[in-house]
Design a binder for these strands. Sequence first.
DNA 1: ACATTAAGTGATT
DNA 2: AATCACTTAATGT
Length: 216
Amino acid sequence: MQPLVDKKQLLHDTIGYILEEELIEEMSKIAKIRETVQDEIIIHVGDELKMIPIVVYGSIKVSRENPDGDELLLYYIEGGDTCAMTLQCCVRKTDSQIKATSMEPSLLLMFPSEYMQLWMDKYRSWREYILQSYHTRMLELMETIDEIAFMRLDERLIKYLTDQAKLLGNLELHHTHQQIADDLHSSRVVISRLLKQLENKGAIQIRRNRIILKEI
DNA sequence: ACATTAAGTGATT
DNA sequence: AATCACTTAATGT
């Protein structure tokens, strides 16, 4: 039994401002609901994507991953957004180049990938939505490239912490040093030392599995 | 009480 | 800034 969720209402609330009524109507009929728990991996590298996801609420992090398990966080996806990489995969029928992880309990609406093309032809608002999505993702990618190229690790760490806090709406982060090291593609020891410095400066407090920011 | 996992530290490159 | 090798601390069984 499908849970009592008004998909049409959800669509209205998340992307209703940009999509036309007719499309919302069509989408609400075929949408599948997917709920994720914290740290659930939604997409693995190499997965063949058969569904386009749109995030209703929660937050998803998208990272690059090589076969050795080395990682690098690329950008986040929040409510109302979709994943640009997914869109590409759906059209070209290629495997996923990225990994998507749920950062908190989240709700996604899933649409079979064949609708991607169909709606492209049929709805002007869908084209705009997709283009806009690509654009913001592109900007975010450039931002992270800047960070990697020009910022020192301690600055990146501070940005990472505040970004996470903002995204999760909580000054307390439940991350291990290892997880942070993975996201920033650094090593646990280095992160531990930098965090220690921040704690000495009074910017944060460190507990096991927990980092408490003083302010954003 | 013991095992496991997270975090801290000094030395080396 | 990364890695090694080890210690110490917190937590689960």
